[in-house]
Design a protein around this nucleic acid. Structure first.
Lengths: 225, 225
DNA sequence: ATGTAAGTATTGTTGAACAATTCTATAAGA
DNA sequence: TCTTATAGAATTGTTCAACAATACTTACAT
């Protein structure tokens, strides 16, 4: 059915309507609001307001809260309500620790899936095009897609899911920053990294990626400290 | 956070449960039943039965289901009920792919936390003692603890959580096997791996670990195919 | 056997209700 | 003025009962 390293964990839009529960539907809507910045970190999610707006029952809404809490996008404080997660500097450092592990293992792999490489080329091209046209939010989207595909080189569904979750968490910090200063510095490096991967220079790719992640971490730490 | 074992509360202590929500409490009980084999893979969890037994409402129980579903211990089939997850060979292969990544990165690290090393020694000693006394279930527990500590060398909370979840999933397969034939072959290797880690021979440790994981995967694949 | 239709059981979702807890605003006391 | 106390309001935690939607079972007909 689904290949070991397929990207289904990342795709957000499904072409045909899939039967899912109301709770998952509500969770999907809230997830999108959080990751796309409609709900900023620290915001409180009041049950009465959301039940009215989404037209679901409180019980169903609470099931959705459980889902998103487990994804670390919401924080559930007992008797105090549900809030959009606020990442601490320690969280950002931890996320980059995991990214180094996942993406590092990915580029170190000798057997690169050619389909993934093609997808990487597309992502880089999309990012460059968006940058040229000043669509910096789209640059960010393409950048995240690039790294999601990098992670997929590991060929593991679970790693794909972990990566998707990590990047969703990272978006919580992105919203506090100007997307241009956040993504512009990393555009040429993605292109360079792609070139190294295509030519099989894994060691150099690994080194470039390491410096990439170190600098990205520094930028984000400065933003949320 | 609310891992099984932190509070060994059962039905009697329920009135004193104040720290966490009822849903998390129910999830903790079900999680323990699944990981400890009280509920075998494929078993169906009927709402009416469990609400009666745990004395929680259906809504609360469903919140617990959501939690455990997200942990991949339960499988939620729409309109068809909730089942204890049955791992496919592909799942086992995927889990070992992630283990190779996580534990590989851990042993490759140059800076080993001395506290973790001490904990590793304890785990190995516990396993050997349990084996000598024929307590093979305890051997398994110590073995899992050993590898959880290995993962913790990465120094990342999120990696620790991922590893804990992976090992919980693996237990689903363990229950289909004799714990002796499952763990006995790996006991001396844990000791050997520990020795290599203590003496800083990371490359050798990495190699030993790789062969260890390859063989463990083969054993489990044979068991669940 | 195969397929179909009716009846039953279970899940999906809702709304109301009430208890438990937190928040808020006001008043009393130092 | 600043705390502290406290009553009241607001919100969350949990349960229950109801009904709709779906799946499962059984009996029957072909």
């Amino acid at each position: 059915m689904s290949e070991p390293g397929s990207l289904d964990a990342y795709e957000e839009t499904r072409p045909f309507r899939v039967r899912s529960s109301t709770a998952e539907w509500a969770a999907a809507i809230l997830r999108r609001r959080v990751t796309q910045g409609g709900l900023l970190p620290g915001s409180r999610l009041v049950e009465d307001e959301l039940t009215a707006e989404l037209e679901v029952s409180r019980n169903t809404l609470r099931e959705a809260f459980r889902l998103l809490g487990h994804e670390r996008l919401l924080e559930h404080k007992l008797n105090r309500g549900v809030y959009v997660r606020v990442l601490s500097p320690a969280d950002v450092a931890d996320i980059y620790r995991v990214r180094r592990m996942i993406e590092g293992a990915a580029v170190r792999r000798p057997d690169k899936d050619p389909i993934a490489l093609t997808a990487l080329r597309d992502a880089v091209a999309d990012a460059e095009r968006a940058a040229a046209e000043g669509r910096w939010l789209d640059v960010g989207t393409a950048d995240l897609r690039f790294h999601q595909i990098i992670a997929s080189l590991n060929g593991s569904q679970r790693v794909n899911a972990m990566m998707a979750q990590l990047l969703a968490e990272l978006r919580l910090v992105f919203h506090a920053m100007d997307p241009r200063v956040l993504h512009a510095p990393f555009l040429p490096r993605n292109r360079e990294l792609l070139t190294l991967l295509e030519s099989g220079r894994s060691a150099e790719a690994e080194h470039l990626l390491a410096t990439y992640l170190d600098e990205a971490e520094r930028v984000l730490l400065a933003a949320c400290a």
